[in-house]
Every structure is written in structure tokens, then in C-alpha cells.
Design a protein around this nucleic acid. Structure first.
Lengths: 320, 320
DNA sequence: TCCGTCGATATCTCAGAAGTATCGTCACCC
DNA sequence: GGGTGACGATACTTCTGAGATATCGACGGA
């Protein structure tokens, strides 16, 4: 049983005449007769009544043809769907991200992506950098936004590119003495109850802060820990203490909260976009294309990194 | 694009290995490689990732395979459905019948048929004998129950067999003077207001009655005409007059109605089962089989008529 | 009764599906 | 680090079977 048999049977049902159906199919009449006969033998039932008035489906033929039509429609749809999936118009994009990425790059990028690729299912998983890296390597994610370049087992198989730079800023209540100041100094911070993110989520914030404030700073020991940056801002705005976080926080202004720089200016690890060097899904390619179009600088870095990977592979080839 | 390509792609997706998939398909590995390559070229997208760990569908491959599976399922279903339709287990049976056939043969036969062939759609059309005949000839009915053997254009192309015999009986109210009598005479009928079916629906009842009672019988001129036999019985039971109808009426007893024979016994035209000599649908064959099983006498007549048709066709063949 | 139409059958041809042999590539492993 | 084995791709051959041509048989209409 081949697709040919179905096409021939449908053509015969349409033209109700062996000769004309064969003509429409671009073949001669005898092969059509034979193929229909073969089909009827294989199905085990006569599918067409040959009368003087024309060739008409039997009851069995009607039942068969209805299914045959659907089968061929499925095949045509299979080709179309495969093409769309290959162009990244359908499918899914599994994105792992660090919570604070929801503040700045994600809303813009995901908004554009959702508009340009409405039929791609976005699967968003908030997770720490280390888990994102492991999930990327294990093939459980297509792309991840992490804090700093991924490290650990398999990280060398990833392509990573920074998306924007951050430095440490502080947030206080508008009723706080620091409110209205453009900046606070590290010395001032040492005197204050602090609100920070836990070390695992923003590891360099944790370690970096320790270095910045001094290992045994009393402010650190008594610091309030909040996982969500919105919580940090909210706690700071309600006067619990001085919130510390990435300059991305400026994207989440809030009545009652005052943001100020920290001097000396303390760079924080970049947000980094990573994906596997191989096994890129079409949806991911579409995602990268959209980033290229909308953030030329990130796009350029991306192309540079990908070029480096190609060169390295070329080098590997030349070596062997 | 042939069904072969779909089967091969599905086997490859299942075994994740060219060699093993080819083995399962009963072919060697190189042809499988070629067919998959041809398929990918025709679809215009790579469908499988060949890795060291195995062969896995790409996003496009997943989309394609899902549809391919459904397409092959449809084909398998097409064969099964065609077989069922050919055996008369599915499909439809278009039955034309004279209203009074609802009294006696139809409830039994349709009940059995519905139980044995639950998936055959029964289309029941109440119509006069002449319309049934025309509809049979035009191919708009599969089988008909008529009053008397079909006549008119194309009737010679039908096979007909009587199903039971009828004679004229009368029905009166239990308060009527005739109530309790086993029979009434034609002479007695001439004195009474009559209730009869219209001539077109039961033509021989009309013409036969005229012959029986005499052309200018006053009872005929003032007769009440009711299309439905239940109506005739109901009117008679409520004392409007003497209802006349086929002995089939006995199958519809009713409180307040008294049935009695008419003397002399007056045979009425038989109910006749008819269908086209050629173009018998499988559902019709199943219908006839059920009649054969349950009414051996009708079955025998049926086989006799069909045999006659075959002989005639044989004779035709010998002549030419 | 002849003739035309239409599907079935017989036979041949050739495209292409499948088979065999071999190559190129990549892990893996002493 | 070179040897080795596994795997898919490629080159070439073989043979099945789809399609073409010619013809037959059956039926209907003039």
C-alpha cells in the first residue's frame, strides 16, 4: 500500500472515468487499471463499480476514500509543519534565566519574540546560574541567561555572550536619610542594616560584597536576605534597610523607593546569554536573529563568538 | 513522497539507529540512508540529527513524524473501514415503505437489523408504492416495501418478493352492533359509513373496494378517508364508522376496537420487498441475510427470484 | 449488425528501490 | 597518539515493478 494507490483512487473517484483520471494523473489508462486492481486486492474489497454510465465508488470505496483523503492531507500538512518548524516558526524555546533578568533584558526580548513568533511555545524556567548551565549541557534547555559566564562540567561546549553590563547600586526608602543623595559610599553602607540577595542566586554579589565591605563587617552578618529583587526594593522602600543590587533595578522604579549609586563604582558580573555550540533548535536561531536585529552590539558579539567556534572547529579539522 | 518514506522515518525515529531500523524494516542500511536523504531533500529540511549517541529527530522531524504517524494510522483505518463497509457492518440502508408496513413486518425486521448491525445508519422514508419504485430505479433507495409488485418505468430492473399475505378486515367500536361478531358481510358494509385509506396510498384497496361494493355504493361516496391506519382504527373505535383495512391491522390492537373478518374473504395485494437487481449495497445484502435467517419462506422466495435473475442473465449471455 | 467506447489483459521497457562493497569520520582505548 | 571499531554516506550493481504500447472483450447505440 503506497501513497500512489491513494492518489490514483482519489483521481478515479473525481473523474469517474479511468481514461480521464489517468490523463489527469499524467499516466496511461492501463497502469491506472492495474494499480486500482492491486489496491482492491490488497484492501480485500471492490472499491469501484464500473458501469456504462461511469466509475463510481462502492460503499467500501466511499469509506476508503474518506480516510485516504485525510491521510494525504496529513502528509501535506506534515511537509508544511516540518518546514515551519525548520524555520523556527513553530516549536518551543526552553529558556532558563536568573530571576533578576526579568527586570531588564527579558521583557523586551520576550515581547518581541512573542510578537514575531506567536506559534513558538515559550517555556520559561527561573533557575540559578549553575542549574542553567547543567540544564543546557544536559539538553534540557535551549538557551539560558545567567549571571556571569557559565562554569563547570560541559561549560566549554556552550557559546556565551554578555548582554549589558551592571554595577552595584543601593535602594532606600524616600524617608531614609540617604534619600535624595545621588550616591552613597561603602563606608556609609557599613553603618546600615542591609538587604541582599542570597549568595547562590547572585554569587558574585555575595562574595563581592564580602570583599567590598570587609569580611567581618557587622552589616553583612545581620543582613536581610531576599530572593526576589522586587522584594528587596519593597523592603528597602518600607524602611527595613538599605537594599543592594544590580543597576538593572532601575528598570523597576517604585513610589517610596530611592535609588542611588554606590561609590566606588563596583562592577557586577554581566548577564550572559548562553546556548550549546551544537544542537541549536530553529526556534533558538530565530530567537538569536531577533536579538541580532534589536541589539546590534549583542548581535556583533554573538557573531564573533560563533565565528570563533567555527574557527576552532576548522582548526580541529586542520589538526587531524 | 510515498508511504515508504513515512514508514522508514518512523522506524528510524523508533530505533534511533540506521542499521537497526533497516534491520527491523527488512532492508539493508544503505537504502534506508538514501530514502531518508531523499525525504529530507523533498521536505526541504533536515529531519534527523545524526550524533555519536544515536539518531534523533530535529524539531522539524518531530513535527513531521507526528503527522506521518497520523497519516499511516488513517491508511490502516481506511483498509479496516473499507472491509467493514464491504461486509455491510457499516454504511447506510435507505428504506422506502408504505405506511401500513410499520404495523407488521417492519418493527420485527428493523429491530433485528438494528441489533445485528448497530453501525449501519437506517434511513427510513415513508412513501407511496409509485414513489418507492421511482426512487429505487433512480438509485435513491436501497430497498422498498410496497403494496403489490412495483410497476412502471424501470420496474423490470427490480427484484421483488412478497412478504406475507393480507386480506380485507373490518374494525368497529366495541359499542357498535357488529362488535362481538367474528365477521361482517359485504352486504352489511354497504349499509354503513365507512373509513378507508386514500386510493393513492393503498390503490388496490380503493379500486378493489369499488369492485367489491359496487361502483355506485352510497357507502363509498360518503366514506371517511384517513391516511394513517392507526387513525382508521382510532376513528372506528370512537364510533365514526366501520374501518376497512388489511389484516395487518390485527398487529395494532386497541381498547375499544373490535376487529372482524369480511365475508366473502377478499385478498388484498401483498406487501412486497423490492430492490435493484444490480447495485446491491453490502448493507442491503446484510439486510436480506437477516430476512433469510428469520423468515425462511421469504428467504426461499428471495433466493428463487435471485436465481431466476441469474438464469436470465445466463440466458442473455448464451444468446449473444 | 456494425461500430465506438471503455476497462482489462499481455508484453516490453526502464526508473528506481534494494543489495554489495567501500569510504570517511569520529569516539574510544590501549 | 596511533590503532580500532562503529556508524552513516557514497559508488556501483541488480532486479523488482510502475508505466507504455498494443490488443482484447463486453456492452450500447445507431
Amino acid at each position: 500500500m503506497e501513497a500512489r494507490h491513494l492518489r490514483y483512487a482519489l483521481a478515479l473517484a473525481e473523474h469517474e472515468h479511468f481514461g480521464r483520471a489517468a490523463g489527469a494523473l499524467g499516466i496511461a489508462q492501463p497502469p491506472l487499471s492495474k494499480q486500482i486492481a492491486d489496491l482492491e486486492r490488497e484492501v480485500g474489497a471492490r472499491l469501484f463499480d464500473r458501469t456504462r454510465q461511469g466509475v463510481f465508488p462502492t460503499a467500501a470505496g466511499d469509506a476508503f476514500l474518506a480516510r485516504a483523503r485525510r491521510a494525504l492531507d496529513e502528509v501535506a500538512a506534515a511537509v508544511v509543519e516540518a518546514g515551519r518548524a525548520a524555520r523556527g516558526e513553530t516549536g518551543r524555546l526552553r529558556l532558563g534565566f536568573i530571576a533578576s533578568a526579568l527586570l531588564e533584558p527579558l521583557p523586551t526580548v520576550l515581547g518581541r519574540f512573542g510578537r514575531e513568533r506567536p506559534d513558538v511555545r515559550l517555556e520559561l524556567h527561573e533557575m540559578a546560574t549553575s542549574r542553567s548551565t547543567a540544564a543546557l549541557v544536559a539538553g534540557e534547555l535551549d538557551v539560558a541567561i545567567t549571571l556571569g559566564r557559565p562554569r563547570g562540567a560541559g561549560a566549554e561546549r556552550l557559546v556565551s555572550v554578555p548582554v549589558g553590563h551592571d554595577h552595584l547600586i543601593a535602594v532606600v526608602s524616600t524617608a531614609h536619610p540617604y534619600a535624595g543623595q545621588p550616591s552613597v559610599s561603602v563606608d556609609q553602607l557599613r553603618q546600615q542594616p542591609l538587604i541582599v540577595a542570597p549568595g547562590e542566586d547572585e554569587p558574585v554579589v555575595g562574595a563581592g560584597l564580602r570583599a567590598l565591605l570587609g569580611e567581618d563587617s557587622p552589616a553583612l552578618g545581620g543582613a536581610t536576605v531576599a530572593r526576589d529583587i522586587h522584594t528587596i526594593i519593597g523592603l528597602a522602600a518600607s524602611g527595613v534597610g538599605v537594599g543592594l543590587g544590580p543597576s538593572r533595578m532601575l528598570a523597576a522604579p517604585r513610589p517610596g523607593a530611592w535609588f542611588c549609586e554606590v561609590t566606588p563604582r563596583t562592577p557586577l558580573p554581566d548577564l550572559v546569554l548562553s546556548f550549546t555550540a551544537r544542537d541549536r533548535s530553529p526556534a533558538l536561531s530565530a530567537f538569536l536573529d531577533i536579538i541580532r536585529k534589536n541589539c546590534p552590539d549583542v548581535g556583533a558579539a554573538l557573531d564573533h563568538r560563533l565565528g570563533a567556534h567555527c574557527e576552532q572547529r576548522g582548526q580541529d579539522l586542520a589538526d587531524s
